[in-house]
Amino acid sequence: METQYIATPNTFRQGIKDCLPTLLGYVSIGLAFGVVATTSNLSILEIFLLSLLVYAGSAQFIFCGLYMAGAPVTVIILTTFIVNLRHLLMALTVAPYFTKYSSLRNIGFGTLLTDETFGVAVTKIAQENRLGGNWMDGLNITAYSTWVIACTVGGLIGKWMPDAESWGLDYALAAMFIALLILSLASSPRHQIMRYLKLIGIMGLTLYCLLYFMPGHLAVLIATLIVATIGVMTE
C-alpha cells in the first residue's frame, strides 16, 4: 500500500510561504544577537559581516562570547567549526532529495542550510516525501535575508536598548528548538512516537553526563551521534 502525500507546488513563492512561520524566530533572535553583539564591542559592519558570512545563530552568539573573552583566533575558529559541524549531519539528511540538481545549485542549497530551514525541510519530507529546488531556494533566501537584516537592525537598536535579557528575547532560540522538536515528533509515524520519546529521555541523560566532561556544544554533537546510534541498534 502506498502512503498518500499531499503535494504543494515546487515554487519559490511556496518556499517563501513555508518560511513565514519561522521568521518571527529569525527576527527576534537576530535582533537579540545584534544587541548582544554591540555589547561585545562589535561594530555594526562586523555584525553585518558575521551574519552574512557565518549565518548561524548559536555560533554567532558563541563568537561574541569568545571574542569578548579575548580567546585566540584558532580557538574561535575551531569552536565555530565544532558548533556548526551539526550542519554536516543535517546536510546529509537533506542532500539525498536534491541529487537531480546541478552541483552549483546543490552548493546553493547547502550554503544556506540552517537549523530552522532544516526543520522546515524535514517537516516537508515527512509530509510529502520530496523536496523541490525552487521551493528550497525560496525558503533559504527568505530566511537568509531576514536574518542578515534582523542582526544588523539589532546592532543599531543595541545602542539604545542594551538589556535584551529582561525582555526574554534570549529565550527565542530555545523556544524555537522546542517547537521544531514537537513538529518533527508530530510528523513521525504514530507507532514510532513512544520510541522517539524514550530516545529523547536517553538524550537528556546522555547530554547531562557528557556536560561533566566537555563544553555544551561538543556535548550536543557527541550525544546526537550516540543516541542516533542507539536508535538504529534498537530498531
Binding site: 539528511t93 513521525s188 542516533a228
Partner: peptide, 24 residues
C-alpha cells in the same frame, strides 16, 4: 541503508539535544 536509517534519527536527536543543552 544503515546510514540512511541512522540519519532518520538525527533531526530529533539534534533538536532534543539543543533543548536539553539550553536547560542544563
Amino acid at each position: 541503508d544503515v546510514v540512511l536509517r541512522w540519519l532518520k534519527y538525527i533531526p530529533i536527536c539534534i533538536l532534543s539535544a539543543l533543548v536539553f543543552e539550553g536547560m542544563f
